[in-house]
Design a binder for these strands. Structure first.
Lengths: 255, 255
DNA sequence: CTGTATGGTTTATAGTGTGAACCGATGGTT
DNA sequence: AACCATCGGTTCACACTATAAACCATACAG
């Protein structure tokens, strides 16, 4: 049902952060539909300004209407405005950098963060893309996302960032078991030789799966056992608080 | 052409910041389509997660896919990440609310803002859509947009918001002359009895016309002559900075 | 020049989307 | 309790829309 609409909307999924601009032929190939069809659908999406077309290169890209919709979404389902103060508080209490990331279709992207004010701290940029298998956030997400999504992520060729990065799917699945058991994920030098990350999943999808992760990262040497314990406790509390404030669902199997 | 798709996308326009959640019947009424049709289209939009449905109230609202798209858009066309810090700076230096709006097909829409922290300030809550003829942003935009667009905007029946709102097309055209002469627009009680706005156009369209506006709004009593001068200077500087950072074009006739 | 890309357009035909009418549930009103 | 007006959601025959193959026009490389 609503096949044409479904096709049009599926075209939007072709636009990713790694391929943010697409030509007509590529779109037709990738979507598997006829060029004429794709052309008309993109034309309609363009009329609604959900996509726009570069007048010179003819490439299509996501359009300005999305910005308006994002604002409306933020109104009905505040996220950034709720998360930011919580991050600020975490960083204040721990002294370490905290960040919040969301799954965006092909990766986990940092959408809000609070950077530690200490001279030596873990830095990250907004919009930074986090590898699923090597970061605490990625592991926390993988442990609680849809199975198909997890399988797809692990089926890819996983790059190694340090000598401690686990890159075999089986090894990672083992780790994810531990994550599900403890309720939080850690990344001990697996992404950066000097950093240690701790993360908890954030639930929000209607089906009770994760939508992102909340994490704290610090230089290894400061991540002593008591500090770790405190961070885990804080993340847990904050996760609950977030769920409460957002009306998120937490699966009974969690916590 | 692509009627079903167009209808589906037009449903997205029903969601505004003042009505961020909509029920099926309302949506059918507002869109003018049959309930069954709207139900099916919303269902399809929901599958794509462009909208989501509250499991309890059954109301529809903008979905999480929009967040992903906004991030992709931000990748191909950075805007918010460039504009937001500039707004923050303007508000910090002036102490007043600043905002950035874009033309979105039939109106000027606020896409980013920084609200003054002073006890009494101009709020943007219900201002997601700015009337062209009564706000500083609207006038700044009208003065530098495509002629046909301006004519169409002025041909409509223009509502009056205060006793100072100019609603005759000829009077407004006069005002636009002044705007083009000075390079900035003001809205002195024309939209709100207690507010004074100052705005400059932002250029970006390939043809050298405006794409939006950058503005500062403050309570009348604080908008003294020296404050106005400072704001104008700040807006001018910021506009140039924005153009530089975004690769925007500024017409030789401006500034 | 030719081969192969690109973006874009046309058209008969297959099949999808439409909307009036209907259902069951909920919540006020009398 | 009966009633009425909503609500969200569903059904189905018919009408009309969307489809995809074949078609341009253009651009670039060999």
């Amino acid at each position: 049902m609503a096949i044409a609409v479904k096709r049009a909307l599926s075209l939007l999924e072709l636009f990713t952060e790694s391929a943010s601009e697409i030509g007509l032929s590529d779109a037709a190939r990738l979507s598997g539909h006829d060029k004429a069809t794709v052309h008309r659908l993109l034309g309609t999406l363009r009329e609604a300004e959900l996509v726009e077309q570069d007048p010179h290169t003819k490439l299509y890209r996501i359009g300005p209407a999305v910005l308006r919709l994002a604002r409306v979404r933020e109104k009905s389902t505040p996220l950034l405005s709720v998360v930011q103060p919580l991050l600020d508080q975490i960083t204040q209490e721990t002294g370490e950098t905290s960040h919040f990331s969301l799954y965006t279709g092909d990766a986990l992207t940092v959408v809000a963060s609070c950077t530690s004010s200490r001279p030596n701290h873990v830095a990250l940029n907004k919009m930074e893309v986090l590898p699923m298998h090597a970061t605490a956030s990625g592991l926390a997400y993988l442990a609680y996302c849809k199975k198909e999504l997890r399988d797809r992520a692990l089926a890819q060729n996983l790059p190694s960032f340090t000598r401690w990065t686990v890159t075999e799917a089986e090894g990672i699945k083992q780790v994810l078991e531990d994550v599900r058991h403890s309720g939080f994920a850690i990344a001990d030098k697996s992404y950066d030789d000097d950093s240690f990350g701790i993360a908890v999943p954030i639930f929000g999808a209607a089906d009770g799966t994760a939508m992102g992760a909340l994490a704290v990262a610090a230089p290894i040497y400061r991540m002593t056992e008591p500090v770790r314990a405190k961070i885990v406790e804080l993340l847990r509390e904050t996760s609950s608080e977030l769920s409460r404030r957002m009306g998120f669902l937490i699966p009974a199997t969690f916590g």
